[in-house]
């Protein structure tokens, strides 16, 4: 199986290198092989990159999960303080609000405008939406 695959790759390489050597007079079958091979190379490159990104993503996800677990363990060790803090946080919410929105480099007025536009586009009342964060994309 591997030998056959190697042979096929060698044949394709031969055709493409022939194509390269006579760029001025490329035949239609040679052009077809070059096009298919080129498309395959693009896929190959991006698939390998995808695998690398999945691996690094998995590493960072597991690191985040460990950090979260450690944080929760620390919280369990000192349960009294958060219990007291929770009602204080709830008291700060406006009536009917789904929660706080984190703003990154966005003034309050612009955030309010963006939320209103989103609600209008979605044809959904604003109090039924929960905005988690708004960040300026530069």
């Amino acid at each position: 199986m591997f030998d056959k695959l190697t042979l096929a790759v060698e044949e394709i390489t031969e055709v493409t290198s022939e194509a390269a050597s006579k760029g001025d007079e490329l035949s239609i079958p040679e052009a077809g092989v070059t096009a298919v091979f080129g498309y395959a190379v693009v896929f190959f490159g991006l698939v390998i990159l995808m695998i690398v990104l999945y691996c690094t993503g998995a590493y960072f996800k597991s690191r985040d999960a460990k950090a979260k677990a450690a944080e929760e363990a620390a919280k369990k060790a000192a349960p009294a303080a958060p219990a007291a803090a929770a009602p204080a946080a709830d008291q700060k919410l406006a009536p009917g609000s789904a929660g706080h929105v984190k703003l990154f480099d966005v003034p309050d007025k612009e955030a309010a405008m963006i939320m209103a536009i989103v609600a209008d586009k979605m044809q959904t009342p604003l109090n039924e939406l929960h905005f988690i964060s708004i960040k300026e994309v530069k």
Partner: peptide, 26 residues
């Protein structure tokens, strides 16, 4: 990334079409 790769189809089809219309490889 798969979608980014797939969307290069036009590049190679147009390349093939250009050869059929008599253009050089370059």
């Amino acid at each position: 990334l798969l979608l980014g790769a797939a969307a290069q189809m036009g590049v190679f089809l147009a390349f093939f079409g250009a050869i059929c219309l008599g253009f050089t490889g370059q």
